[in-house]
Simulated assay, not measured.
Amino acid sequence: MKTILITGAGTGLGKELALAYAKRGDRIILVGRTKESLNDVKDLIKRTKGSSLVASCDISDGQAVKKLIERLVSIEKIDMLINNAGIGYFGNLQDLSIEEISQMIDTNIKGTIFMTKEVLPIFLEHQSGKIMNIISTAGLRGKVRETAYVASKFAVRGFTESLIKELEHTSIKVSAVYMGGMNTPFWEGSDFIKDPSRLKSVKQVAKEIVEREDEEQMIIS
């Protein structure tokens, strides 16, 4: 059994990854901003006799992340970090607000880097651990009406590829997951995707990620 910390674990892919790994027998640390949704996932895991812990945190706040990991390390041995939390706003660049752009940069890039920075010393101390960054195919190629979102994902891709090189002589494993659009609450409040139900099932994507966990680069179209 591994202890896996998943960010953005209250909804969408994070939720399904939490359920899938818990079903496999792993202990899950559910991290996100909204405690209510995290507790809902915790209850679902409990119903299947799984084990989990809720820890609310704004991962775009570096000091909050530092305090979170310090607290968790005192009670848990984290074996794997899944940087899943992400936010997206879509449209022509000139129509995006400064706040929307900042939120994408802060959550998608800074959140991933802050979480990794605080967990990595623990992995290095134990000479074991895995970091999985959920990036999306927006980190592979440019897309119309996704300029700032794609920029944030390209940044996470560069961060991940550099981290792989930085840790290549250690026992720490780093992987990147690039998946297309899924039928998740991610699209709520947006008219960018007219019919999310036609997209790939998030449960199916989560299942494939768990099955292919050992791959350094995973592309799920």
Rank of each mutant, 00 (worst) to 15 (best):
L38C: 15
A20M: 05
S56E: 13
G10T: 12
V31G: 09
G189P: 02
T107Y: 07
E213K: 13
A176F: 08
M104N: 06
K46T: 10
S136F: 14
S197I: 02
K15I: 00
Y89C: 00
M179E: 03
G86R: 06
I69L: 13
T184P: 13
G158A: 10
I172V: 12
E211N: 08
I209K: 07
T11D: 14
S56M: 12
N183Y: 15
A22G: 02
E118Y: 15
E100A: 11
E208D: 07
L13Q: 10
V205I: 12
R47D: 08
S175G: 15
E208P: 08
S175N: 15
G25P: 01
K207Y: 11
N39Y: 07
Q103S: 12
T48V: 09
D43A: 15
S60L: 07
G180C: 04
F159I: 01
T147H: 05
I219E: 10
L163G: 02
G139M: 03
D214L: 13
V65G: 04
L81A: 13
G158T: 01
T107M: 01
T184R: 10
I59L: 11
I164D: 05
D195S: 05
T48R: 15
I29R: 08
M115Y: 07
G62S: 11
S162Q: 09
M80I: 14
T107F: 11
D40R: 15
P196E: 06
S190H: 08
Q103R: 15
F192K: 02
D40Q: 15
D106H: 13
A55C: 09
T3I: 04
S51Q: 13
K23T: 01
S97P: 03
E213T: 08
T137S: 00
R24P: 00
L199R: 08
T112Y: 03
A20E: 08
Q94L: 09
K203P: 01
P185G: 05
V174S: 09
I122Q: 04
T11W: 09
S221V: 03
V73T: 07
A206C: 13
R141Y: 06
T3H: 03
E99K: 15
I78H: 09
L30I: 09
K42S: 15
G62R: 11
A64R: 10
K200C: 02
I193S: 03
I4V: 12
G189K: 05
E168R: 15
S60I: 03
S152F: 03
I105K: 07
S171K: 12
S152D: 05
E99L: 11
D106N: 13
K46L: 09
G142M: 11
S74F: 01
A155E: 00
I209T: 05
I78C: 08
I69N: 11
F90H: 06
W187T: 00
N183V: 04
E188V: 09
S162P: 05
E161R: 06
T184S: 13
V156C: 04
R27D: 01
V119K: 03
P185F: 11
A138V: 01
V174T: 07
K143D: 00
S97T: 14
S171F: 05
T170I: 07
R212G: 04
V174E: 02
T116P: 01
K194S: 07
G8A: 02
G86V: 04
G139H: 09
T137R: 13
L44M: 15
F123H: 05
Q217E: 12
I82H: 10
I29Y: 14
I109N: 04
K49F: 07
S197H: 11
